[in-house]
């Protein structure tokens, strides 16, 4: 039941991404190209998702002490804005601007079967592995 639920929620997410245009690098890059072929569609994606999630979360946290399938909510509690967060996010934006794919757009786009998406995802996963290795190294050094 838990697995089927995650599968179906993933499907809702994936179809939302696909029809919204977030899985289409041409559309994503045009959103950021105000000085050129600007396509403001993605404001509606972010706006729609944000409003529904904000109301949805309020409803969930306000009425339920715990999620249906788990003993507790698993939500990040840190509030610290550090160099790691800002530096990582800066890099993410640079990569997003170069390739036109973000992780949430690229994974559902795999289902469309285009080679370009597989190339991007392979590189992105490699990037995550490199970062995790580097992160562990620096962490160990800092605590040595």
């Amino acid at each position: 039941m838990k697995i089927l639920s995650a599968l179906l929620i993933g499907a809702v997410f994936g179809i939302g991404i696909a029809i919204s245009g977030m899985a289409n690098p041409a559309k994503v890059l045009n959103f950021f190209d105000i000085a050129g072929t600007w396509d403001p569609s993605l404001i509606f994606v972010m706006g729609g998702a944000l409003v529904v999630a904000a109301i949805g979360y309020r409803g969930v946290f306000g009425t339920r002490d715990k999620p249906l399938f788990e003993p507790q909510y698993n939500v990040p509690s840190s509030r610290v804005i550090d160099a790691r967060l800002v530096g990582g996010s800066s890099l993410f934006g640079i990569g997003w601007g170069i390739a036109g794919f973000c992780p949430g757009g690229a994974i559902p786009a795999l289902g469309l079967g285009y080679t370009e998406t597989f190339v991007f995802v392979a590189a992105m996963v490699t990037g995550i592995v490199i970062a995790r290795t580097l992160g562990n190294l620096t962490f160990k050094t800092a605590n040595a």
Partner: peptide, 21 residues
Amino acid sequence: MSLLGGVLIGLAATLLMALHG
């Protein structure tokens, strides 16, 4: 279509929190 897609993304986020936390 972008708004509808966004609403579905928000719905998925809400469901994943409500059911899986």
